[in-house]
Design a protein around this nucleic acid. Structure first.
Lengths: 367, 367
DNA sequence: CTGAAAGCGCTTACAG
DNA sequence: CTGAAAGCGCTTACAG
């Protein structure tokens, strides 16, 4: 259009000040509510802003304030709706506090995680919410301790100096396993996350704890730990069924793993819960619509996102709390994937064999 | 720790220049590969950077370059894994081009969309990928035309001057409906997106087109258009079954709607595909694991994200293309939610009544 | 080719 | 209380 001005310079605070016959400082202070002005002056400024279509330049403000007004959210997989829900809750909380939230998809790759954490160093982020999903080799710890503007969510980085927010993993696993035991299962397999990773360790601990409370032994040949990967769970299941005596129930350390198990069962023409029962962890959306509706341990993604942002903003503003690890409560969502063991004559409490209790799942609160 | 310096000033390009005995300009040019330096000078600079632990300040660079190096991704619901997959692909493409991607969750609220679009004005974003999911009242159009750094993905904003990237909606709907007709269905319901919204209109058109090609009439009492809301689909289903003669099959305009339909069917103790068949649109992850495995139209989320970013970067760099609307191809993923109509003696082509073809779903390419 | 200097558009300590 | 001026830390047109 206008060939005359090659770059139609953006209107700045100077332009507004000039038009309103005040100083740039006055406009700046007025806009940030640090100055009570006489009404006529106010209106002149407002009119100038309106007329010149003035919008403050965020990059200039950020350079000046030495704050990017942005926080990073690093997750292993944004497509996993459990993580997406946390991200969504975090974005809302951040937005309310005047911060943008940038979601970074690490694909569980430590090099990408480190690269993303470096964006704190170049001032792209004021801080970062880190949801890692693998065992640290020490590099994450070092990186975090170098800048100290990180909050650990969902999984731990041992040795890192950072606020932490985790689920009640052990309690949840105990709850889930006890639920199976109550239905008469004695031969229960564990298909869970990696050894050395917080959720994997703690959920396995809960699994053992429930057995101990029921005076039951854990058959170590039925314990499978591995990455949170659908295919790995798929393979674990096939191994379980390849051996002599398969279990009558499985506690799976994550809904993604449960999905792999369900797929494998389907491929082997096994029905859940007729041929075996299944309880899982996470409660991803639509878990109630799977075949069968999945009984699983729920953790509040809202809590994760909201409280995580709170912790990070406190850290950024140097309002440091006691460095305790905070925990998100859990509850068991009872749906249709658990029944009595096959070929068992033991009395069951509910009539839940074939029929799913899908709507308004019965909720068993965690401790 | 150090009480002496209240603010331990970050090291700047000046510090590096000083330590390496060159000018800041030389360092800047060296770092951006605009300058070939003698090896000894290079090493001195590298050593200084290393020793001082120098990281360029991104906010300063951005102010100077008048570019935020960031693009926005506005979606109605990041928890919907279909959108999350597009976001993920877009993030990868943006990252490869040196851009950050910020995901914004609009919750399909136009005020939030407008607010997010304003971040172009204050220089937070160099441009925006907009995935809206409702009919515009004119405000989106006005806003987009005011800054012209927006690419429209998945849904249209009529009248907006912007590059567009949409799915082959009509072809996909035709494919899906024809699939039902081939299985002997004549009484097919449509439960789809809103009238006036691109996907809703075009998919309905494809639904009608398939009928016309088969010389079948569409029963208008079986056509339900509404927002992409699980509960709305739930209610539509109940209405369909409340009337006299329910359909023998449903084409649903989105997997989220299909989920609502499946939930309603389950609550009414109806089995799919025994009691009615269902085909849908989107192919969200794990669609194969639902009960039944969902036959649905697939669109490549990878294409959406990648090509969308490409279009936006071209726009930002003023490498404008012809303003054509680009289309993403579709294909039908045949799984287990379609069978012959109930009480029908018509011969069916595949044996697909009860048994699901879940693994490696048969793929029928779109035109 | 190289460096001193101006400029990006804000904010705020400082002086009047 | 108010404004002139310095400063945030880069990039780059300009002069030498």
């Amino acid at each position: 259009m206008d060939k005359e001005h090659r770059k139609p310079k953006a209107t700045t605070i100077r332009d507004v000040a000039h038009a309103a016959n005040v100083s740039p400082a006055a406009v700046s202070r007025y806009l940030s509510n640090q100055l009570q002005l006489p009404v006529p002056t106010k209106s002149r400024i407002d009119a100038a802003i309106e007329a010149l279509n003035y919008v403050p330049n965020a990059m200039a403000r950020r350079l000046s304030l030495n704050s990017s007004e942005t926080i990073g959210f690093i997750t292993s997989d944004i497509v996993n709706s459990f993580f997406a829900l946390i991200a969504s809750a975090a974005e809302e909380a951040a937005s309310r506090a005047g911060y943008s939230l940038t979601i970074l998809n690490s694909r569980n790759d430590i090099d990408r995680e480190l690269q993303f954490l470096s964006r704190i160093d170049d001032r792209q982020f004021d801080g970062v919410l880190l949801l890692t999903n693998h065992v640290d080799d020490g590099r994450l710890r070092t990186k975090i301790n170098a800048n100290r503007r990180v909050v650990l969510l969902d999984e731990d980085v041992p040795g890192a100096v950072a606020p932490r927010l985790f689920a009640e993993n052990q309690t949840g696993a105990d709850l889930a396993t006890a639920h199976l035991i109550e239905h008469g299962h004695k031969r229960i397999a564990y298909v869970g996350g990696p050894r050395g990773l917080l959720s994997g360790e703690e959920r396995l601990k809960g699994f053992r704890q429930a057995h101990a409370k029921a005076l039951l032994d854990v058959d170590e040949r039925l314990v499978f730990s591995g990455p949170y990967d659908e295919r790995v769970a798929y393979d674990s299941f096939r191994q379980l069924w390849a051996g002599g005596e398969p279990p009558t129930a499985i506690f799976s350390g994550g809904d993604l793993l449960a999905l792999g198990i369900m797929q494998a069962a389907r491929d082997m023409h096994l029905r859940i819960p007729r041929d075996f029962s299944l309880v899982s962890f996470d409660d991803i959306p639509h878990a109630a619509l799977f075949d069968p509706p999945l009984t699983t341990v729920r953790q509040s993604t809202q809590d994760f996102g909201q409280r995580g942002v709170g912790l990070l903003l406190d850290l950024i503003n140097h309002e440091v709390h006691a460095p305790d690890t905070l925990r998100i409560p859990v509850s068991l969502m009872v749906r249709g994937s658990v029944a009595a063991p096959p070929r068992s004559h033991r009395t069951v409490h509910d009539g839940g064999a074939g029929k799913a209790q899908h709507i308004g799942a019965q909720k068993v609160e965690g401790v």
